[in-house]
Design a protein around this nucleic acid. Structure first.
Length: 649
RNA sequence: GGGCGGGUAGCCCAGUACGGAUAGGGCGCAAGCCUCCUAAGCUUGCGGUCGUGGGUUCAAAUCCCACCCCGCCCGCCA
């Protein structure tokens, strides 16, 4: 017999057995949930119930006495995977598994399901769009933004394995001021042909243009503030100006020629601000010149992104242009619909969405987990010049996504929490409460550099490309040191998956809600980073199986009596549980952690017990099968987080 | 000021949804282990006011309240 979830078989048997006994002892009592815990120590069995503590209190009895009565009442003739049941501590009921049977069930199941082991299918398969990365086509993807594709891709892989129909979408945010800023600078330079990787090339232009325009704007505002002697404001503007001036100094240092060229060209423009705004307006209208210019820039940047992402083995099913959403009139339609709701007001040309009013009228506070006293800030939908803002377009885009999927997961940084909330409220206001309920903002925290924030606008960032290159380079040095006998080609190959694995792992292992401080050491220290360790463990398992030169023909699983073997069997049997939890709660880091723990146990086993040379042959066969199951589970787990499981390294 | 997220060994992080038995790893540090399936490995040791103070409970890192520290957000930016 094989099972997709061996541990669940055992758990179910324990629960049924416990429920029967409770029924016999207390026919009238309803016990809501029979949850079982993993005991802290193998002497307490493999699953434990603490229900006697609570029950005893209700009955006015001693917990331990009750536990004993309960255990005596269990119908032992029905035991299959249960070996025996004991009481312990103040009143625990401890279930001990019959390892001879359980090992057979687990190992056979893993080897039978092989590439599918652990991937328990959902009862409710959905069409799910996972929108991730969606970095603006302005400057290269930096390591802070890279946390997004690493998480998004792991989530997409996990949900797919869970049996959902998953579509990975990249939202190309080509509409909006920032694209106009970049294109403005690019045009001022006479649309030069990109040197090197286009996203890196445009990144320099974007940062420099943005900085110069910003300084220009701040100076003007400062004059205006001085004219009316607004002391407070002057101080604030001066601070901002100082910041940008120091950014300018850095940029001048880094890209001298480009900086001088842009300084000169932009200097000739009396009012860059207006030119940029006009360009933005023209693009939204779909004017030919603007379209041609901004599309050219965006496409070129995307080429660079695709190159970067494919190095990281991240791919998409759809590239969605924000401009298409605007030009198709979808945004206009949504605005008209919103205007008919009682929550939108027009002040001059400006359209404002009163999110607080909508939340109150539709009684959403509880639903959205908001405090009653919290006032949701209102959202500007349309500027005075008639152009739209990002959240407005996002409402239209979200509806577009829901025409194609039942559930939408947006992998977006937590700094956009409010915008995502407002988006959701707008959906409710439009009457799409079903969509709103199925819209998930998967928020993750920022990756910072020690001491300061990474940002595209200021050019203070470390690119994803740079990190990957450095990781692979460093891995190459490491391989060369550890395995000088390998061929050049082999070394390259290993360096590649070790380096990339380390980068992936570093960004997936921590809980997404925690901030990560990027240090080269974190990614490149192969002692600290667990990815190479897990990969190495997998390779070791493969190596044993290869060296054995035989299949485990007559495995006697009852000979697997060592504590270490039992622990590995339990770990392997719990993979389906871990997988389900990771998929349901969208927690890819659970998979990373699980793989690390299993690798750990396996290495201990490797060191302590012989496999190929174990006697008798039936034991050796059983251990070979065990090693095979570890190999399969490590590989399946690594696949979920996009890390290569190598056969040799 | 308000909202949200985080605070667990010197450093990096699990564990908190659903309270359970002595709070787990890794790095670093100290001491060992290759006549044995890959030493990117293994073993042992040192190291903890689970931010602080209350409360609920047979039982609190986990739940409730208050406070402190860090981050993010509160834009006609995205």
């Amino acid at each position: 017999m094989d099972s997709q979830n061996p541990l669940a078989e055992f758990r179910l048997e324990c629960q049924n057995s416990l429920a029967d006994a409770l029924q016999k002892l207390f026919p009238k009592k309803q016990i809501a949930r029979l949850s079982l815990d993993k005991p802290p120590n193998p002497e307490f069995g493999q699953l434990a119930s603490s229900l006697c503590f609570e029950l005893a209190k209700q009955l006015g009895e001693k917990p331990l006495a009750l536990a004993k009565r309960l255990v005596e009442t269990l119908d032992k003739s029905k035991f299959s995977l249960i070996e025996h049941v004991t009481t312990a501590g103040g009143g625990y009921v401890n279930f001990h598994v019959d390892f001879a049977k359980f090992s057979a069930l687990t190992i056979d199941s893993v080897r039978h399901f092989d590439t599918e082991y652990g991937f328990v299918k959902t009862d409710n398969p959905l069409k799910i769009i996972v929108e991730h990365t969606s970095a603006n086509p302005l400057s290269p993807i930096h390591i802070g933004q890279a946390r997004n594709p690493m998480l998004g891709d792991a989530i997409a892989r996990t949900l797919k394995a869970r049996g959902h129909n998953v579509y990975r979408h990249y939202y190309i945010d080509d509409v909006g001021r920032q694209s106009a800023v970049l294109s403005y600078g690019y045009e001022k330079l006479g649309r030069p042909k990109p040197e090197g990787k286009p996203d890196h090339f445009f990144g320099k232009i974007y940062t420099t243009t943005s900085c110069l325009v910003e300084i220009n704007r701040l100076k003007k505002e400062l004059e205006r503030a001085k004219a009316v002697s607004a002391t407070e404001e002057i101080m604030k503007l001066n601070r901002e100006l100082d910041d940008w001036i120091s950014v300018a100094a850095e940029l001048k240092e880094k890209y001298r020629e480009l900086f001088e060229a842009l300084l000169e060209k932009i200097g000739k423009d009396k009012d860059p601000e207006t030119t940029i705004n006009e360009l933005n307006k023209a693009y939204e209208r779909g004017d030919e010149h603007a379209k041609q210019l901004i599309r050219e820039v965006s496409e070129l940047c995307l080429q660079g992104f695709k190159e970067t992402l494919s190095c990281a083995e991240v791919f998409y099913d759809s590239w969605d242009w924000e401009s298409e959403i605007v030009w198709s009139n979808r945004v206009q339609e949504i605005l008209e619909k919103l205007e008919k709701t009682p929550y939108v007001s027009a002040l001059g040309g400006v359209l404002e969405f009163d999110a607080e009013k909508a939340t109150q009228k539709l009684k959403l506070k509880k639903e959205l987990n908001l405090r009653e006293s919290y006032e949701v800030p209102s959202l500007t939908l349309v500027r005075a010049d008639g152009t739209t803002l990002y959240p407005t377009r996002d409402i239209a885009y979200t509806l577009w996504k829901f025409e194609r999927a039942e559930k939408v997961i947006n992998v977006i940084g937590m700094e956009q929490k409010l915008a995502q909330l407002q988006l959701k409220i707008a959906l409710y206001a439009l009457g799409y409460s079903n969509y709103a309920d199925n819209l998930i903002h998967f928020a993750y925290n920022l990756v910072n550099l020690p001491g300061y924030k990474m940002s595209s606008r200021t050019g203070r960032y470390i690119t994803f490309d740079e990190v990957m290159d450095e990781a692979v380079k460093r891995a190459y040095e490491e391989v060369s040191k550890r395995s000088p006998q390998l061929s050049e080609e082999q070394k390259q190959k290993i360096a590649n998956f070790v380096g990339m694995g380390a980068v992936r792992y570093a960004l997936v292992e921590v809980d997404p809600s925690k901030p990560v401080v990027f240090t080269w050491d974190r990614v490149l220290n192969f002692e600290t980073n667990s990815a190479p360790y897990i990969q190495y463990s997998h390779a070791r398992a493969c190596s044993i199986l290869r060296k054995a030169q035989r299949k485990p023909e007559k495995p006697a699983y009852n000979l697997l009596k060592e504590q270490l073997e039992h622990e590995i069997i339990l770990a392997v049997s719990s993979f389906p549980d871990v997988f389900i939890e990771a998929a349901e709660l969208l927690k890819p880091n659970l998979i990373a952690d699980f793989a690390n723990v299993l690798a750990d146990k396996f290495n201990t086993f490797y060191n302590a017990l012989p496999v190929i040379k174990a006697k008798p042959q039936e034991l050796s066969d059983a251990r070979l099968a065990l090693v095979d199951s570890v190999r399969i589970v490590l590989r399946n787990a690594l696949n979920l987080i996009g890390i290569v499981a190598p056969e040799r390294m």
